[in-house]
Write a protein that binds this DNA or RNA. Structure first.
Lengths: 253, 253
DNA sequence: CGATAACTTGATGTGACTCAACTTAAGTGG
DNA sequence: CCACTTAAGTTGAGTCACATCAAGTTATCG
């Protein structure tokens, strides 16, 4: 937070953007970025606030600069379901549609680089190279969502929990360090138990039991509610029911 | 089958394509279509045959002309998971990637309009308007996959079964008739029980029990394994746990 | 430091998976 | 074209993982 606050907008031509080299903006020329710079500006949202409500007309899109945004669907009987998590450099918002079928909510305090949706849509049509990047990114996202759907559906809660923990440990590495660095021993999961449960398709109670089970068997150690120490990564992978290669692929998206 | 066999390719300039007005080709000019016509040709696959194996390099893409293609993922322990079903006019294949993370298999006998992948990719880059349509279609698909993920995850098997039956009844209507015609009384689900189970994230046994339960309570009537008569649509909707509006939206994708 | 939310732990009921037998449908070759 | 074979679908019994309800414990924030 403190660091991101002093940075210019994501696509700023000054080039000091934290996520620049990982977002779609990377495909644009200096002039393109200058143009994007004009239609974008940074905004912060407190944890829990709604960025875009389900079914509401959406007028902003953009990139996550910092924090985690949850993409969720609330059914008629009131239970939430998280269908996606968005991390720094991920694009948010629903292009080319009147309204969003899902709600975008700040799962942590977040910093976003927001743009007026119609303005960005016009920009895309005028810049096929960047629209091409958007298409590629969307195709990757589609694969990732399907992969996650396959995981949440065919596996036990323990397998999902283990997968999530391992993927988060890898993702943190992918974002901070470069190359194929080993997984950090400390895993930070910045989500509440309820959000994790909604993402994994289970309840906070069952989730807690599984986490404690992993802690009792010395696979992880609970530092606090959102921090874990990875004592036995190999065992964690075994619990996930996936191969290491698959897990690393999921984490890389 | 018999009818599709005598039709020219999907994007044929002769304009007698069955799915033309629903596929991305609709955005192209006459010249564009002629160009597509040159790189595409129709192929048929027998039920059960693999169009594109998981993890294999993929060299073809295209549109479904007739039949149903299942997009599935096989995990290490061998159980299949269907992450998507493709119907006539849907695009298949993984653009801009070396290999497909999922396998494409013919769930019924299918007729495809296939194109050489690199050739179509080159075509897209040269035709931003059509690539724009691809992006919109992909965004729609992403929404649909997420919506389905939310359904399979938070609902009981009965709710999923009811949803599937209702959506299939609507989808058939959307494809054959035009406008907001009432749902047909006869629902045709051209998939095997195993495929349906893999799609719904359950087993053939549990699926069968739920279908028989609906039949016993006179909500549907089993004509044969793949055909059902809708005796009480309102009850079916009630069993699905969704609103009618939501179901219709799902079916329209 | 007190209040409220977040998380953990316990007890209990049940939906759905598993293994297994049976029935019906779909191919196949003589 | 019909017996034979094999696959597909249905039904049954038993078990278990997980949701639910409820109480207790630990964080978090004013």
């Amino acid at each position: 937070m403190s660091q991101a606050a002093e940075l210019s907008c994501v696509c700023g031509k000054s080039g000091n953007c934290v996520i620049y080299n990982r977002s779609v903006c990377a495909a644009g020329s200096a002039e393109d970025l200058a143009q994007l710079d004009r239609i974008s500006h940074q905004r912060t949202y407190a944890r829990g606030s709604v960025i875009q409500a389900q079914g509401e007309p959406c007028d902003i899109v953009g990139n996550i600069v910092e924090g985690v945004v949850k993409l969720s669907s609330t059914s008629v009987n009131g239970d939430d379901h998280i269908v996606g998590l968005l991390f720094p450099s991920d694009f948010f918002g629903r292009l080319f549609a009147e309204e969003s079928r899902f709600s975008y909510e700040a799962a942590t305090d977040v910093t976003l680089c927001t743009m007026n949706k119609p303005a960005f849509e016009r920009f895309l049509v005028e810049h096929p190279a960047i629209e091409h990047e958007m298409l590629k990114a969307t195709l990757d996202e589609l694969d990732a969502v399907r992969e996650w759907a396959a995981i949440t559906n065919g596996h036990t809660t323990m397998q999902r929990v283990a997968t999530l923990l391992y993927v988060f440990s890898r993702r943190a590495v992918n974002q901070h360090a470069k190359g194929n660095a080993p997984a950090s021993r400390i895993v930070h999961v910045p989500l509440s138990r309820r959000d994790i449960a909604d993402y994994l398709g289970t309840t906070p109670e069952t989730l807690s039991r599984n986490i404690q089970m992993l802690a009792r068997s010395k696979v992880i150690r609970n530092i606090n509610a959102k921090h874990f120490e990875l004592l036995n990564p190999a065992e964690l992978i075994r619990h996930s029911g996936e191969t290491r290669a698959d897990l690393d692929r999921i984490a890389s998206v």
